[in-house]
Design a protein around this nucleic acid. Structure first.
Lengths: 153, 153
DNA sequence: TATTTAATTGCAACTTACTTGCATTATGAA
DNA sequence: TTCATAATGCAAGTAAGTTGCAATTAAATA
């Protein structure tokens, strides 16, 4: 059940504005991609974005658009370790993490982070440009009842 | 500079024993792979393991051997988000994490974990079979001086 | 508004990491 | 020593993502 964000429209407008400010162009595919990402709870694989959108154009366009958006920090790429990267809208929102169901791949968002201390430590160890990736995996309640979907468990 | 583990030999013996106890067979490729993993500081990609070993046989064999070893928890797979999984020897050792240089891909091991609390929380939220993936990325001191290697930065 | 330029797209071909099927080989239990 | 079956090697196959290039088009400028 696609959950809609509040203020999705203004988020979309802000995103398009950010594109323009970065000498990127607002095209039909990009508009459609951002509409999906700002209106529904992701993250989405490239394939999902492409499938769910009418004017998203070629899949290659989706790849390239998302890469461009990631570069200007409109979108964040996450890695659930299952062979396909996922993208979620992340414009200035604070850092957060996910709990990912190994069965149905549903995602719960945690709005805090426990790894700030680790980043600080890495900086003290002399690293620059520090970041981190943290994902929690498990089997959600529904999937615990459906043994067949327990692929990755 | 490959750093050698203390007690590497006994670790290797224990690993071979674990193979046998799991109805797996000790073959030349597997012996060679485990020798590398127990004697040098990883983690290594499949390609690295294959390249560095004389009797490792076909790359397919390395893929299959490492997968088999992962299944019986002799080896842990980690994901630095750069398109190739890495494997490290991890036989009963406690859970830990890495700081990975985005330049040279060198790895520093942290012998503790901050995500236990998160796992507990996920379980309270109803998830079963909980695990997590956490990696820290940064540019190590050496790579900060060599701008050309800053590929992923 | 018309012109211009450079970003974006679509297509097709390619790369890379990894997997699978199957006949052959060889480990280790009996 | 025999023998079941685990593991290997080879070749072919996937699947995700990338690249080159000509055609298109957004938006800056005249």
């Amino acid at each position: 059940m696609p959950r809609s964000y509040p203020q999705a429209k203004s988020r979309l407008e802000a995103a398009l504005q950010a594109l323009r400010e970065n000498h990127s162009r607002v095209t039909a595919p990009r508009r459609a991609i951002l509409k999906l990402l700002t209106h529904e709870h992701g993250p989405f694989t490239v394939e999902e974005v492409h499938r769910r959108i009418k004017n998203a154009g070629d899949v290659v366009t989706v790849y390239r658009s998302l890469a461009a958006m990631e570069e200007i920090r409109l979108v964040r790429r996450c890695d659930f370790g299952d062979g396909a990267y996922r993208y979620e809208f992340n414009m200035g929102e604070h850092h957060h993490h996910h709990i990912v169901c190994r069965g149905c791949r549903s995602v719960k968002t945690l709005d805090f982070c426990v790894a700030d201390g680790l980043e600080r430590m890495a900086r003290q160890l002399g690293y620059a440009n520090v970041s981190h990736a943290l994902e929690i995996f498990g089997l959600c309640r529904r999937c615990q009842k459906k043994p067949l979907e327990m692929a990755g468990a």
